[in-house]
């Protein structure tokens, strides 16, 4: 079965002056997949993520996200993706409901649809009692779950998660990954960037970036087998030695 490709990247290069942030990247991401994008800080993940989400233009190469060209149709891409990072996704001084309304409005959803989804979402997360509370008063774990729900509120084709689960307790983290699994099960492709190697174990496939290049790309199990390593972390240590 030929899987649908939702992200196609061919020979992507991004330069900042003399500095090459992304050096000839090529990869594909399939529909409904959980794709881990790993690398140390400064390896070029953020640059690539910006290009994929239509925020930045590639210097050269072809980037197609959700069927749209990142160079020519960045606005179309933005409509078809969701984005969440741990820190900045929700407004701390708004309530949970207000945040949901806000994002629904930004993505042009109708009032009734927003209302319907809000109720659905609050029920699903057992969130009823928290709906009218300020985000700043919520525990970290709940914030994360809400942030993910908001990011996929408009049913995007792809959701980008930027370092989503740093520092949470093991139970919350598992609950969060279950949510990610569920999101993928619904057909939304999940693209996770992280430098926490243990998060990589949860992904369907991972790519490892180092110095602007992709140095490995496969399923975690296959990479571990190839490099004869017990964990993705070991794989990473074996192949990605970061520069100072």
């Amino acid at each position: 079965m030929m899987k649908n490709r939702v992200i196609i990247v061919r020979n992507l290069v991004k330069r900042f002056g003399k500095f090459i942030a992304n050096d000839n990247l090529s990869f594909e991401v399939y529909e409904g997949e959980i794709f881990g994008f790993l690398g140390a800080n400064g390896a070029g993940k953020t640059t690539a993520l910006r290009i994929l989400s239509g925020l930045s233009e590639p210097t050269s190469g072809e980037v197609i996200v959700a069927g749209f060209d990142a160079k020519k149709q960045p606005e179309q891409i933005k409509k078809n993706i969701g984005y969440m990072c741990q820190k900045f996704s929700l407004y701390e001084d708004l309530t949970a409901k207000e945040n949901i309304m806000l994002y629904g409005g930004i993505y042009g959803m109708s009032k009734t649809l927003i209302k319907e989804r809000t109720d659905e979402l609050l029920d699903k997360l057992n969130f009823r009692e928290y709906g009218d509370r300020l985000i700043s008063d919520l525990p970290l774990g709940l914030k994360q779950k809400l942030a993910l729900s908001v990011a996929v509120l408009h049913e995007p084709k792809i959701v980008f998660l930027d370092e989503p689960t740093g520092g949470v307790d093991p139970i919350t983290r598992r609950q969060f990954w279950e949510m990610i699994y569920e999101t993928a099960y619904r057909g939304i492709t999940v693209f996770v960037t992280t430098h926490y190697m243990d998060e990589a174990e949860y992904c369907d496939r991972i790519s490892i970036m180092s110095d602007g290049k992709i140095v490995a790309l496969d399923t975690p199990a296959e990479l571990k087998r190839q490099y004869n390593a017990k964990s993705v972390e070991e794989v990473f240590i074996k192949i990605a030695r970061p520069k100072p």
Binding site: W177, E178, Y181, A184, Y185, E201, Y202, P220, A221
Partner: peptide
């Protein structure tokens, strides 16, 4: 392969006490 379905199914299995995703 389908982790989400697996977790869901295991949770509903009467003999299960706990089921948590753990890596792959």
């Amino acid at each position: 392969p389908e982790k989400y379905k697996l977790i869901d199914a295991l949770r509903k299995y009467p003999e299960t006490i706990t089921a948590y995703p753990f890596g792959d």
